[in-house]
Simulated scan of single mutants.
Amino acid sequence: MTAASTPSSAAGAAQAPLQIAITTGEPAGVGPELTAAALAGAAAHWPDAQFVVIGDAQLLAQRAKAVGVDWASLAASGRVRVQHVPVAVPAEAGKLDAANGRYVLTLLDTAIDGAMAGTFDAMVTAPLQKSTINDAGVPFTGHTEYLAERTHTPRVVMMLAGTGQRPLRVALATTHLPLKDVSAALTIEGLVETLRIINSDLRRHFGVPLPRILVTGLNPHAGENGYLGREEIDVISPALNAACAEGIDARGPYPADTLFQPRYLKDADCVLAMFHDQGLPVLKYATFGEGINVTLGLPIVRTSVDHGTALDLAGTGRADAGSMVAAVDAAVSMARHRRAA
């Protein structure tokens, strides 16, 4: 799969530094320590960016020690500052507490509001625990849906991507739905809009001039000419025809079990899968620890890690910060593209 062009770290010195917000996520999870680990080399890796870490300052300093980061020295560098939001109750690594569910949403709201106001050029989100937020009495499906609601965006697209030498990208036509509801959620209009968003954001945020998008079918063997389902005939193919008529290079529908091969992906910029567990297991197998989650279609830039809260690793210093580093790197790169556009 072709890699997007990535601007060098030597961005224009005359411009003000990019302002990147990072939410530290579930306080009992690995988010705080991964944030510290990722930012330890901020000055060297992202000299044109400053980072605003949104979370509990005392918790951050405590968890930074677990990964050998001197948080006071990092803050003194001028590249990183904390926007202090206190936890509702003391957080213990690995032990969830519903009392902090609303705290996690406050972190998100602070970053979203700042990004919408133009204070932040991008936001990066550490993993959160959906169950804790729901246990706090707040209906919550996920980051993607929450961002869409808070930014009043009628349709967003979840895309996970490998980075570095493995730039595989997989976007989803549907996100957090029970499998039995997927077919009814697929419409011609919805798929066309999803393809528009992918096409536009790959150009705008990733520097891909002419995106090529490969689209899976929904059913085994892409429906086997209708014998295994008609969604490919009645919905997906008409959507592809409509998108192509608009100048979008979208191809398919392809059987999902054979599409994810190098010979098909080598000249593609993104795969659009029909549901969550159709595309993401392949993506995560190929790129886990280096992958990122990007929300396309928003009026702001948002990236995240490709994993969860890893409660069993929280506070141990053993959690791998690779995905967090990649998410920060992608946010900076996307903000650069956006500023240059």
Results as ranks from 00 to 15, higher is better:
L218R: 08
R336T: 00
A273S: 14
D320M: 12
A185C: 07
H176N: 06
A76Y: 13
V282M: 08
Y227D: 15
P127G: 06
Y103L: 08
V332R: 04
P178T: 07
T153F: 09
L108I: 15
A99H: 08
E145V: 01
I20S: 02
A161S: 15
T309I: 02
D277R: 00
P32S: 01
A148T: 06
L240E: 15
V294N: 01
A326L: 02
V53L: 01
L283T: 12
L105T: 15
A37T: 00
V215C: 15
D249C: 07
T151Q: 04
I133Q: 03
L59G: 07
V30P: 13
A57F: 10
L202F: 15
N134C: 12
G29K: 01
R251P: 13
V30E: 02
V325N: 04
T144G: 10
A3Q: 09
T287M: 01
V87E: 10
I292W: 00
E26C: 12
N293E: 06
T175A: 14
A310Q: 03
A136V: 13
V305P: 00
A171P: 10
Q83M: 14
S333D: 14
L108E: 13
Q58H: 14
T119P: 08
V104E: 05
D56P: 07
R203F: 14
A37E: 05
V157R: 09
I188F: 09
V89H: 01
D267C: 05
V294L: 12
R318Q: 15
N199T: 13
F120H: 14
G78M: 02
V104I: 13
Q19Y: 08
L280W: 10
Y103K: 11
T309Y: 07
G142Q: 04
G68I: 15
L160A: 01
P7I: 00
P27A: 07
F275L: 08
T23P: 09
L240C: 06
Q129S: 11
L74A: 04
V215L: 11
A37P: 02
Q62I: 00
G279R: 08
P220G: 06
P27W: 04
T316P: 09
E145S: 03
A28D: 04
P253H: 06
V182Q: 07
V192H: 12
A117Y: 10
K65E: 05
S304F: 01
G291N: 11
G12I: 07
G164W: 05
L172S: 12
M334H: 12
N293S: 11
A76S: 12
T175S: 12
R155V: 01
G315D: 11
S73K: 14
S333M: 12
L313A: 07
N241E: 14
E149S: 10
T309V: 02
G317C: 11
Q165V: 04
I22G: 05
H152S: 14
E193F: 09
V271T: 02
A341K: 13
V271P: 05
L259F: 05
V332P: 00
S200Y: 11
H205T: 15
D267M: 09
V325H: 03
A321K: 04
R204S: 13
S237Y: 04
D181W: 05
I20V: 12
I133A: 02
E145M: 00
Q83T: 14
S5M: 14
P17T: 00
A36T: 00
